[in-house]
Structure formats: structure tokens, C-alpha cells
């Protein structure tokens, strides 16, 4: 890879993906909290989708909560009122996330830097207030209650149950790994490399002939597609849609997970989601003010370990490799 200066071709499924799938599969067997593993993967998907914008394209969006919430409401409402097949509602959740992202993106990418950030934040607040006001539709402050989680009927006669924690986890796990495979491919595609170029130097990206507005908008739509899907899964998971799903706090959750895990890779935000979710579960039992601990950890990471947890892991692995090869040479 280094010798020739270009990343090698990666097949869709390789050792990396298998390792990720294996590790993610272990979650319900090592964690004492029964419903947490599914929630972790849902948030991990949201954080990875967010990182397409920040880590790869250099756009800090505070609007991800709006996309997540739109996905959640779409799945919730379609299940409650129309009784659609869960998979169909998830497709619609992705589409509503993508369409919301198209609108937010279309306006926000007209500006860069601080103004871009403020526009995404304003859109998130806008969607939140609409959801809050439409009490008849969304349940407003109380949340959208009684979302059913029916079994998946694949053929007439073949039903896949989603009722127990483990059954539901397996379903989420399959969707999650599928999404990661697709997202990883997108990030290694010519399109994905242009996103990195935009992050590195937007003026140069334009000067060499890329219409970067198209690329930025498409990045938004892709992020919306997967964030909306994560939102839809969340509605199935919670069997309701709390108003917090569409609030700014969801946006900041994804931001904190990504930054803590590390922006530089696909896997950082996943690790961030795992760590934040497990820590919050453990700490909230011990101390009501646990967010303080999370905040302090976040500050320490931002000041001293900007590469995040993934950065620490890769650095440690590098060291180990060097040590091992050194020992081999000696012996």
C-alpha cells in the first residue's frame, strides 16, 4: 500500500468486515444489559452516517437528529396507521431521511464554516418544533406511543420473530453489517475519494474540475439515507418514538460518539457508540450526574487525543507490530 502510494483494492467482504461482524455479534453475549446491544448498533449506524459528513467531507452537521427523527416517525406512523411490512417501513424511513437531508443539505451547503453549522442546527430545531407542535400526529412531548413490532413475514408461512432481545438484535446486526459494507464501499469509491479531497482542500477540488456542490449534496443524501434507516430501526427497537429522537441531543450524541471514537476512519464512530452507550448504562446506575464524567472524558480526548479511541488502538497495534518484528529479528 505505502510502496506505491495508493490504497489497494478492497473486496466488498474481507477480513476487516468479518472481524467487525464477529465482534459486533459478541455484544449480546458479553454485555449484561439485555436490550443494549441492539441500541448500540443503531447508534453506531447513526454515528457512521454522521461521520460521512464530518470525518470524510469536513462538514460538521448538527442536523442529524432531524434525519434520525424523520426516519423514526416514518416507520412508527406507517406501522401504527397502515400496518405495513416492517421492511417496507424501513425503506420509507431511509427515503424520508434522504429527502430531509436533501432539503437541509441544499440550503446548508450554500455556506461554509460557521454559517453552515448554524444552518444545520437551525434545520434541526425547525424539524423538532414541527414534530413538537403536531401533537395529533407525533404525540408531541409524550412521544409517538404504541409502535408495534410485528414479525417479519418473508414468505407466506415463514415468519421471522423479532420479539425477544436476541431475535431483535440479530435482525439489527444483519442490517448493520449490510449497511457498513455498503458505506465502506461508497467511501472507497471514486466518489468517496472526492469527498476526502473536498475535506482536504475544497478550492483545489474545484480547480481540478469537480463540482463540489454536487458531491456535498450527495454526501448529505447518503448520510440521510442511513441515518433515516437508523431512526426507523430505533422506532422498532423502542416500540415508540420519543421526542428526543428528533431533538438536538440526538445530533450531539452522534457528534460526541464520532469525535470520541475518532473521525479518521470508518470504525472510530462505531467504537465511540459502543463506549458511550455502555458507559452511560453503567454510570447512570451509579451516579445521576454521570454526564459530567462523559463531558470530562470528552474534553480530555479533544485536548490530548484528537485521533480518538480508534487512534489509540491503531497506535497501540503499530507499536505491538514493531515490537514483535523487533523480537523476531533478534531471535
Amino acid at each position: 500500500m505505502v510502496e506505491e502510494g495508493l490504497e489497494r483494492h478492497k473486496p466488498l467482504i474481507d477480513r476487516e468486515i468479518c472481524m467487525l461482524a464477529g465482534l459486533a455479534f459478541l455484544l449480546p453475549f458479553v454485555l449484561p444489559y439485555k436490550s443494549l446491544p441492539a441500541e448500540i448498533l443503531i447508534y453506531a449506524l447513526g454515528a457512521v452516517s454522521f461521520n460521512i459528513l464530518l470525518g470524510y467531507t469536513g462538514m460538521l452537521s448538527f442536523g442529524q437528529g432531524a434525519l434520525f427523527g424523520m426516519g423514526a416517525y416514518t416507520t412508527g406512523l406507517l406501522l401504527i396507521h397502515l400496518g405495513w411490512h416492517p421492511l417496507a417501513t424501513l425503506v420509507c424511513a431511509s427515503l424520508s431521511g434522504a429527502i430531509t437531508a436533501l432539503v437541509v443539505g441544499l440550503f446548508s451547503i450554500q455556506r461554509i464554516g460557521l454559517y453552515f453549522v448554524m444552518l444545520t442546527l437551525a434545520f434541526n430545531q425547525l424539524v423538532f418544533f414541527i414534530a413538537y407542535q403536531l401533537k395529533g400526529l407525533t404525540g408531541g412531548d409524550d412521544g409517538l406511543l404504541d409502535v408495534p413490532r410485528p414479525n417479519l413475514s418473508i414468505f407466506p408461512g415463514l415468519q421471522i420473530p423479532l420479539q425477544t432481545n436476541l431475535q431483535f438484535f440479530l435482525f439489527i446486526w444483519i442490517v448493520f453489517i449490510g449497511c457498513i459494507i455498503v458505506i465502506r464501499r461508497i467511501l472507497c469509491s471514486p466518489f468517496g475519494r472526492v469527498l476526502v479531497a473536498i475535506k482536504e482542500n475544497p478550492e483545489r477540488a474545484v480547480a481540478v474540475g469537480y463540482n463540489i456542490q454536487y458531491y456535498k449534496l450527495t454526501a448529505f443524501i447518503i448520510s440521510g439515507l442511513f441515518t433515516g434507516l437508523a431512526g426507523g430501526l430505533y422506532a422498532l427497537f423502542m416500540k415508540m418514538v420519543p421526542i428526543t429522537a428528533v431533538e438536538l441531543v440526538t445530533s450531539t450524541d452522534f457528534i460526541i460518539m464520532s469525535l470520541l471514537g475518532g473521525l479518521g476512519s470508518l470504525y472510530g464512530p462505531i467504537i465511540g457508540a459502543v463506549v458511550v452507550k455502555i458507559a452511560s448504562e453503567i454510570l447512570s446506575e451509579i451516579w445521576a450526574r454521570w454526564l459530567l464524567v462523559l463531558g470530562l472524558t470528552f474534553i480530555v480526548f479533544m485536548l490530548f487525543m484528537k485521533e480518538g479511541i480508534w487512534g489509540l488502538i491503531t497506535a497501540a497495534l503499530e507499536k505491538l507490530k514493531v515490537n514483535l518484528s523487533g523480537k523476531v529479528e533478534k531471535s
Partner: peptide, 19 residues
Amino acid sequence: RLAVHAHHKGHFSLLRHFR
């Protein structure tokens, strides 16, 4: 390569590896 690819086929391709 990025600069060259802007003027070749597939620079907006999403699902194929850039290599």
C-alpha cells in the same frame, strides 16, 4: 489521481472501488 479522475469516466461512481 484525484485530479486526473475528474476528467475520466466514473468519477461519480458510488459502488465501485476507485481502484
